[in-house]
């Protein structure tokens, strides 16, 4: 009787039909429609003629796009290692179950549940010139306040600080989960050898969670490439576009200037970049099962 149950039946597919229709209509179709749009000249009234890769050429010829691409890459290169290093440090420090450590874990993760709007509001209150917390501190120290949000370089830095503050919880939790998987006998052997804490860290702990470090890095690359809200709300990409990320470029081209073809082309480029990272994640996460 169990055999009938295990047998392949079309009717069993009915269970996935509701989700599959949502998936097809809201994700698959727009994905291909977006690619189609990126190959056409489109205005507000609808798609026009086929223009091949002209939209992509226009995107790559646009200095604003190139600047946004460079900003995003700089942002990822700085923010991702910071997140990984801080997350790893916190996980190592809090890898025990006492009342204090679980309190700290909860606290460091708590910012992750806030919306980007709240996070940027909090950090604007810190960084705004004159009234911000930093200005108040600088004034008390007798130093010249820095205009964090409107100085080139500092603006992207400020966005990075807010982002690390916001996103720190996930890497920490993932590292903690990985640390708890390390077999205890490895540490017992090390204790028998009287290994120093530093040696234990570099010879046992870090090699054991190498795969997780890779995964967390890739996950963060994918997430930070999609930087948008922080930049839009804290600096609006300024000054002179020095803190404008790729997604903000897509938003401005597609929804402020309504150049749909060009916006669609730019979003496909972002998609390709993220897809590469996602592929890397897939390769890393399946590699272990083969061993």
């Amino acid at each position: 009787m169990a055999k009938t149950y295990r047998r392949s039946q079309w009717s069993h597919g009915l269970f996935i039909l509701p989700y599959l229709s949502a998936f097809a209509l809201l994700l698959v179709f727009p994905l291909f429609w977006g690619i189609w749009l990126s190959l056409h000249k489109v205005d507000l009234f609808g798609p026009g003629r086929f223009v091949g890769l002209a939209n992509y050429v226009r995107v790559f010829a646009d200095p604003v796009f190139l600047q946004a691409l460079r900003n995003t890459i700089v942002f990822v290169i700085v923010s991702v290692p910071s997140l990984v290093a801080l997350g790893l440090f916190l996980a190592l420090a809090l890898n025990r179950t006492t009342r204090a450590t679980s309190f700290f874990r909860g606290l460091f993760f708590s910012s992750s549940v806030l919306s980007v709007t709240i996070v940027t509001l909090i950090w604007r209150f810190v960084f705004i010139p004159g009234d911000g917390l930093m200005s108040v501190i600088f004034k008390h120290l007798g130093a010249e306040p820095i205009h964090f949000l409107s100085t080139s370089g500092w603006s992207l830095f400020s966005i990075g600080v807010a982002t690390v503050w916001w996103c720190l919880g996930l890497p920490m939790m993932l590292f903690l989960a990985a640390l708890q998987q390390i077999p205890a006998d490895l540490y017992e052997a090390a204790a028998l050898d009287n290994a120093s804490p530093w040696r234990v860290l570099t010879r046992i702990t870090l090699p054991s969670i190498a795969r997780t470090i890779m995964l967390v890095t890739i996950i963060q690359i994918v997430m930070q490439f999609q930087l948008f809200g922080q930049a839009q709300l804290m600096t609006n990409g300024g000054p002179n576009g020095t803190s404008r990320p790729l997604v903000m470029y897509i938003y401005e081209v597609g929804f402020v200037r309504w150049d749909i073809g060009k916006g669609a082309a730019a979003s496909q480029i972002l998609f390709l970049i993220i897809l590469c990272a996602a592929m890397a994640q897939y390769v890393v996460s399946t590699r272990k099962t083969e061993n």
């Binding site: 727009p30 977006g34 749009l37 979003s267 998609f271």
Partner: peptide, 17 residues
């Protein structure tokens, strides 16, 4: 595979739909 599709890749077409 759908997990790898970022919202930004579909947003313009979705907005039109």
């Amino acid at each position: 595979f759908g997990l790898a599709v970022p919202e930004q890749a579909v947003i313009i077409a979705r907005h039109q739909m």
